[in-house]
Design a protein around this nucleic acid. Sequence first.
RNA 1: GGGGUUAUAGCUCAGUUGGUCAGAGCGUUACGUUGACAUCGUAAAGGUCGAUGGUUCGAGCCCAUUUAACCCCACCA
Length: 909
Amino acid sequence: MENMNTFEMAKVYAPKEMEERIYKMWEESGAFKPKMVEGKKPFTIVMPPPNITGQLHVGHALDEMPQDVLIRYHRMKGDPTLWVPGTDHAAIATEVKVVDALKAEGLTKKDLGREKFLERVWDWKKVYGGRIVSQLRKLGVSCDWSRERFTMDEGLSKAVRETFVNLYEKNLIYQGWRMIHWCPCCKTSISDAEVEYEEQNGNFWHLLYPVKETGEMLEIATTRPETMLGDTAVAINPEDERYKHLHGCHVVLPLIDKEIPIVLDEHADMTKGTGVVKITPAHDPNDYEVGKRHDLPMVRVFTYDGHMTGAEEAKENAELIASGRATADEPVVLDCGKYAGMTTMEARKAIVADLTEIGRLKKVEPLTHEVGTCYRCHQTIEPMVSKQWFVKMAPLAKPAVEVVKNGELRFIPDRFEKIYLNWMENTRDWCISRQLWWGHRIPAFYCEDCGKVHVTREDITVCPDCGKPVYQDEDVLDTWFSSALWPFSTLGWPEKTEDLAYFYPNSVLSCGYDIIFFWLARMVFSGLEQMGTCPFEVALMHGLVRDAQGKKMSKSSGNGIDPLEVIDEYGADALRFSLVIGVAPGSDVRMSHGKIETYRNFANKIWNASRFALMNMQGFTPKGVPSADKLALSDKWILKRFNDIVREITQHLESYDLGMAAANLYDFIWSYFCDWYIEMAKHELNGEDESAKNAAQETLNYVLTGILKLLHPYMPFITEELYSYLPGSEGMLITSQWPEAKSEYDFDEEAKQMDAIMEVIRAARNLRAEMKVSVSKKATLILKPASELTEAFKKSEGYFFRLAAASGVEFLKAEDPNPEKSASAVTNGASLFIPLGELVDVDKEIARLNKDLQNAENEIRRGEGKLANEGFLAKAPASLIETEKGKLEKSRQLADSIRARIEELKELK
RNA sequence: GGGGUUAUAGCUCAGUUGGUCAGAGCGUUACGUUGACAUCGUAAAGGUCGAUGGUUCGAGCCCAUUUAACCCCACCA
């Protein structure tokens, strides 16, 4: 690749122009596609499919980050790496959107009919389904778009059907009347997992039901008086002494004067309320169970869209029952008379008013209680008895529990293991049918004649048994039924494809902890059931994005961050980095524009450091870092530190500590590389010694290249761009090789020497700052180094000129007298003196040195105490005792030197 | 009711298996444009590591109790 002339490099980092260009280059180069090598273990991730209704929000950005970091890291490591992208049809969400769009045209679903409606949804999908996908590209996701899937495409639909039939044939899918959660707003059943409980203010209404046999009034507390028309019993606890005389009696339901029995059931809690519970089997999950136990009739009083039932519904129901289609499991519908057609809320008011009027309302007390709401529309959920399809969970959950317990599936962080197990061990059957049109239609066919149900892989038109016409089940499947198959359906299953054989099971599944039950858990048991293996080895969880105050981001509170806006302003790299740096797995991320700006500044820092490097490498052709004898101390130091950081980052990535790796890298680049190494290297780069200059160029080039590689998974765009400018760069960074630490660069001894020198430089700066000496005013630095460091210090004069504003450096031997009238500091490596003449205030000097002395003495006390402790000496590891002794010795020397200096100054006075 | 998380500098958080005076960023204060970078640099101030007790030679880290905040799950009228 032709290296760009440095002067063409913009002075300021401008992400906007380059990101699109680079993404296009990657995609067109085929870099995102895995290189499948037989026998080599691939690294595979499937992307949690965003909804086609979706607009990119910052949650998506967070969702993609860990995946892209891991994918890019493994690609550079040389693993066959595949990241499968795709989108989800999102049955309810999409259908609602299209219904809304129709409403604007004055149309309803029914007006169009199923077929035309579905055409409209597909049209809608064509327009908006691509939007999220193009938005994802702006984040820099390096997934293999040639393998993009959609949960409703042909292959995946086949997978869904295959799974459904498999489970049905194994008797793991069944159809039946059950108490389910019904959303009157979305007009469909939803699963347990889709209910969110919210605390709401409500009332406790105390109603009076007269007992037929005794004429007394039985006080009954309820939170839902509107269900009373559907009461078919009241329950009392068999042990309850208060009501023993009522065993076998009946009450008369007010308003409709219906006689219903008093039943004895454990469900009635003697300690709660009056100990009497009204039983509405058709509209309350507990009552449903009580009804089953006592064989009570079920009376339905609500329509499926949240109104009170009337004559029409009752008639239909009666006809159905008469026709024999309805079973005993189906509730009988009541004509609610004057309440018919009211919403449930209107009916509540009306019924309470009527009960009050006839004196059957004893009192009302306020209470707060948990109310189930729909996770899509947040409307109150109505428990209804309904005929639905279910997945039998117990047999599927067992192996899904097992794989976590035996370590085949590992959660990161591991606390989510408990959450997962708790759910999996207590899960109830999964209601999978939805009363919608958009989705995978349930492959069940009913014979018009014999009524038999046929569940088939291929559509049928006539009954295989009697040859009469069949009609298909109207319902579709829960969206999560198809996403549960994602790890293998996207690879071609149920066909036996090459991809499936090579890339299944996946390596990692990364998603937010909020969809563990919806998605992750269901993928685990589906993978185990259909494929026989757990679909992934590691479940890497992330949290939610929150605002700067830690609040959830939402449209209503207007605290959201639009990733597209942010990318436009700061660049995708800055957004990416701010979403991962310092974030521990599974914890929430706080985001603010300020935070993103910080990392845009970081990108700018790297940009300029690279610009500096390139300016100093004009005409330079890298031949490799030269032998140790040609390298300056600072070169050796940075090479050693670079080795350290390579090991550290690699280790963190291997253990999925992505936030930690990013933080360490940030620190290394900014402090070690920019603040120190570049500043030190200026000495060699601007010096006369050509071989030293060359060594610095080689080191600079080597370390900078390595830095760009280490940073690439996090900030892919800027690193790719800068890499292209480097002399000696070949091909693209995205497919370059991950750096390795080289043992020949472990210059331990030299690194320590450099650290000692740096400590002196800091001390000198410190002195000057305290003296308020401007940088432009240079001063001589007088050093009295420890004997073993003398040589290193002498070779390092240049660093003091440049970094400590020295005009000259003089060295003293240990026995030489200290200079007068100078500011001084004592470090472990050397004592230093800056002769500042009249600027020096001796009293202040003494005060400051006393402070240092105090610190040293504290340290001595600490060390002495430790080493005097027999328990410590007996039990602490020998190496620790040695280091403690060494430290103590150093502190003593330091204290001695400081004391001596203080004495000198006192004499001076 | 069950389970989980968090509590460390003014703010946001690090602190890996208990062992080098407890760290960073932002903010604050002071100084500063030394030819990569003001989207910058140098330095300073600032913490009895929520509380109590325990284990240990040694605890921010382990155990118990406790306080506070947040989250998830659960059919309680």
